[in-house]
């Protein structure tokens, strides 16, 4: 058990906490480090902000959305396979 984690370890734990329920001594040691270390606190804050920002805005722009043409193309392809126009 090591209560004095380095910044590299803490950054890994901060990331991991985004993806799983992070408990136990590692969580406590991480929280202690975050309390004492402004750069790691900033990282944790930024990663949480990135997560929120992605979750709160819909992907937008041409490269993020399927064009409406594709819908018709898929339906046409089904008709071609079935030999039955819709």
């Amino acid at each position: 058990m090591n209560l004095m984690l380095g910044c590299r370890d803490v950054a890994r734990n901060v990331s991991r906490a985004q993806d799983e329920d992070f408990r136990g001594w590692a969580r406590m040691a991480t929280r202690l480090h975050l309390f004492l270390c402004p750069p790691c606190r900033a990282y944790a804050r930024d990663i949480a902000a990135l997560h929120r920002r992605i979750g709160s805005t819909k992907p937008d722009g041409l490269e993020q959305r399927l064009s409406t043409d594709v819908r018709q193309r898929v339906h046409d392809a089904i008709d071609n396979e079935d030999g039955t126009p819709s």
Partner: peptide, 8 residues
């Protein structure tokens, strides 16, 4: 439901 996600 999933078209945009698959495309991205």
């Amino acid at each position: 439901a999933h078209g945009d996600a698959l495309y991205r």
